[in-house]
């Protein structure tokens, strides 16, 4: 069944603060196999012009994916999560996330559409510090394969 387009434009206010931990950044950098010292060593980060260790460019997904679940798991939306794959991802960065940041994220549903039998939902999470300094915006497009009632096709062509 196609998703309800009434969700387009809906906004979910920030619910909790995410405090970025130095060891969380290290753990994430280890998990992606990136040995860059600016993710681990304060001195190296400072030499590169940062106040403290910074996080890899895709680290914000740790924060924004959880925030996105507010709509993805909203029973009113009726998205079948077992059919969902990640279609597209984009980060627009005001400044890198760094250790000690206390971040919040506001979730917005940018678009919902059905294409070639798939349901597509595009969301955006605007991440800022709790004091309102913009940090990064994460745009995600998720594809629920074959859920909109027509024949399934390759989600990448959507």
């Amino acid at each position: 069944m196609p998703l309800d387009p009434a969700f387009i434009g809906r906004t979910y206010p920030a619910v909790e603060v995410y405090e970025v931990g130095r060891e969380k950044i290290r753990e994430f950098a280890d998990a992606i196999g990136d040995p860059n010292p600016v993710y681990r060593d304060r001195g190296a980060a400072r030499a590169a012009g940062h106040q403290d260790v910074i996080a890899p460019p895709t680290f914000p997904i740790v924060i924004t994916a959880r925030i996105g679940e507010q709509v993805i798991f909203d029973p009113e939306l009726g998205l079948d999560y077992t059919k969902v794959v990640h279609g597209q991802q984009r980060f627009v960065v005001t400044r890198p996330v760094r250790a000690g940041d206390r971040l919040i994220g506001v979730l917005t549903v940018d678009n919902i559409q059905a294409a070639a039998g798939n349901d597509l939902i595009s969301t955006r999470v605007d991440v800022s510090t709790e004091d309102g300094e913009p940090v990064v915006t994460a745009y995600s497009m998720l594809v629920a394969r074959g859920t909109s009632g027509v024949a399934t096709s390759d989600p990448s062509k959507a």
Binding site: P56, P57, H86, G87, Q89, R90, V93
Partner: peptide, 22 residues
């Protein structure tokens, strides 16, 4: 992302990064 961050040497230089999972 690492192909870019290793090249520029400072991962903080990345201001936009987008992909499609094909």
């Amino acid at each position: 992302a690492r192909i870019v961050t290793d090249w520029v040497r400072n991962p903080g230089a990345v201001v936009e990064y987008a992909v499609r999972f094909s």
